[in-house]
Structures are given as C-alpha cells and as structure tokens.
C-alpha cells in the first residue's frame, strides 16, 4: 500500500525542515509550505494530497482560516491541526470546523505517523465509498 501524500504547513522553517526529512525518510511523500497562502497554492498544484498537517498559529492567514479554505475547496483532504499548548482552544475550534484531529508540539514521530495513517485511512475509505457510489451509478445507468 502506498504511503499517504502529506503537506506540512508551519511558519517556522527550523521546525518544518527536520520534520520533513524525517517523514521523507519514513517513505512519505511530503511537501512543505510556510504559510497558509502558500499551502493553498501548493494544494492547487497537488490535488492528490492526502493529509495536511497545519500549524494553528501562523502570521498572516492563520491555521483556522487556512483550514476553512482547504475544507471548502478540497473537502476530502484530511487536516491535522498542530499546536503549541496555548492554542488548544483554537485547535478544538478547528476540529469543529472539520479538522481530523489535533496534536501538540512537540509530538513524537510515532504518534504523528499513526495519526497521519489514520487520517489517510479515513480519506481512502471516503474516496472508496465515493468510488463505489460512482460505480454503482455507472452500473445502474448501464443497466438501464
């Protein structure tokens, strides 16, 4: 089974870089974006993204706004909120807005990858359902 395609969004480059390398090493396809706006641009170019890991606290477009934009344009893509402790409230708010889950910084790689797999799994299941529905629709039209 192929590893999920992930995008990491955080304004802090020093945090993104090692994280990106680590995920990369674990065989994930990974993109990095350093702001909400950049994340949206990247998404436009990579429609096959599975999971977005999104920092809540960013200058400019913050995590919640980015989340709303992502969910609006790409409802299937799962988003995991990443937060420092002080922004737990906004993470919760994010979950209400449709985020898959939230994680607290610093988080252990195993926890992160597990969450990512889970989110991707959800997405695949969802896609499968949609696929199945579409096939059924095609089948039914053929049957007519």
């Amino acid at each position: 089974m192929t590893k999920p395609f992930i995008m990491l969004v955080d304004d802090e480059e020093s945090f993104v870089e090692p994280m990106k390398k680590r995920l990369d090493k674990r065989g994930y396809r990974i993109l990095a974006a350093y702001s909400g706006e950049e994340a949206l641009t990247q998404l436009a170019n990579h429609r096959n993204l599975d999971v977005v890991i999104l920092d809540v606290k960013m200058p400019g477009m913050d995590g919640i706004e980015a989340l709303q934009a992502i969910k609006k344009q790409y409802p299937l893509i799962e988003v995991i909120m990443l937060t420092g402790h002080a922004t737990v409230e906004s993470a919760i708010e994010g979950m209400k807005q449709g985020a898959f889950d939230y994680l607290m910084k610093p988080c252990e790689m195993e926890v992160l990858t597990a969450k990512v797999e889970e989110a991707a799994g959800k997405k695949y299941a969802h896609e499968e359902k949609i696929e199945k529905a579409r096939i059924e629709k095609v089948m039914s039209t053929r049957g007519v």
């Binding site: 802090e12 020093s14 945090f15 090692p18 994280m19 420092g84 402790h85 910084k105 610093p106």
Partner: peptide, 9 residues
C-alpha cells in the same frame, strides 16, 4: 515550547 519542539525534532 517552539524551540524545544524544534530541538526534539
């Protein structure tokens, strides 16, 4: 918190 997160990472 952030520097620590980076260090751990």
């Amino acid at each position: 918190n952030n520097p620590v997160a980076i260090m751990v990472e």
